[in-house]
Nucleic acid binder design. Sequence first.
DNA 1: TAGTGGTCTAGACCACAGA
DNA 2: CTGTGGTCTAGACCACTAA
Lengths: 221, 221
Amino acid sequence: MAEVERRIYTREWTPGQSIPNEADLAIEFGCARVTVNRALRTLADMGLLDRRRKAGTSVALHPVSKATLSIPLIRREIEADGKTYHYKLLDQKIEAAPPTVTKPFGLSDGEPLLHVSALHSADSRPYVIEDRWINSKAIPHLAEISFTGVSANEWLLQNTPFTHGDIEFGAKNAHADEARLLGADPGTALFVISRTTWDQKTALTTVKLLFHAGYRKQTRL
Amino acid sequence: MAEVERRIYTREWTPGQSIPNEADLAIEFGCARVTVNRALRTLADMGLLDRRRKAGTSVALHPVSKATLSIPLIRREIEADGKTYHYKLLDQKIEAAPPTVTKPFGLSDGEPLLHVSALHSADSRPYVIEDRWINSKAIPHLAEISFTGVSANEWLLQNTPFTHGDIEFGAKNAHADEARLLGADPGTALFVISRTTWDQKTALTTVKLLFHAGYRKQTRL
DNA sequence: TAGTGGTCTAGACCACAGA
DNA sequence: CTGTGGTCTAGACCACTAA
């Protein structure tokens, strides 16, 4: 794997060029084909190679960088940063959901759903506002839960298995009340993560996370 | 792999719980240990399992979601969206770099580096501002290149191999000139990607991408 | 020290897709 | 039709690390 990586990096094998097949590489490197397979598969996962049956393996033309972001529990993200985590429930009630929520959920407009909002803090400085809608019908025992002690973020992740989800990163100007909660000026640019999780075809919850001004999400390539 | 996934999902194996070792699973499923290994390794990559030698494999306590974002060439991102790509160089000159640039590059403050800024558009609507500093000393033939026809984004990716990079996602209020270029109001929240790429220990380039208002980066979990 | 995952080998059959 | 990657098997040795 290191050798193939080196050849790509040094342009010995140039983007778009086909490379020898697994069997030939196995002979060249004096190893088993499975070993070559695993190396090439890993490099293809990283986006360095394109692989197609019969057509063979070639160096990726446009090295699509793939950034893998880890999205931990908010509490853990803060604690991993060496700060003290604090959580405060702002509101929890069943209300008529707006179309922006009911639509992806496949429910009719105005359907009553559980709406929870909360503020997570790090070292007593506001960190992120959690604004969440929960499909109360799909989650048993939900009515009995109060999110005063445990955040919905944490409770759901621990108690509600999901099969898949989608996630969206963006930016948004802070409203007056959001700004107040985060201790920023109204209009400040906030980093936003929106996430919806599903169990099979049932939407479970959708959440909008409004991070404090200056928040950055980092990773390596 | 599907069966293990099912057991985790149905809470048959609960978070934190140790699961049987590879050899036992191979017997249970009537397959080779390598096959179990590959399945568990893949699930561990997905963040569902924690694996440690001697300690064994356990279901991840906090299912850290990993979102994989693909960061393609700007041109390809726009074209993949079915829109017409247009590019315009705004400025290209050698100037004294500010400390925010020289510091990560390990150069002394005020060092003259190549500064390039450009606007990428989709269907003649502003899409993203590219604001880039290039380590002219580390990249041969750079002085001869004009980024009028080909964007630095594209030229560098095609011509400059890099070993690693770091990337950062955030939000920022648009300055007056940025707002003008993007056709937005000053102060509008913009989604920002900052990226620095390295060849071994040499920084090659650092770029700040200021996306148009309303831009979202999406992926699945 | 010993149990666990990490990785390798040699050989095999299969599924897909290009020619 | 056929070359390619996809995946499996049985067996082996190694490297790490918890006990």
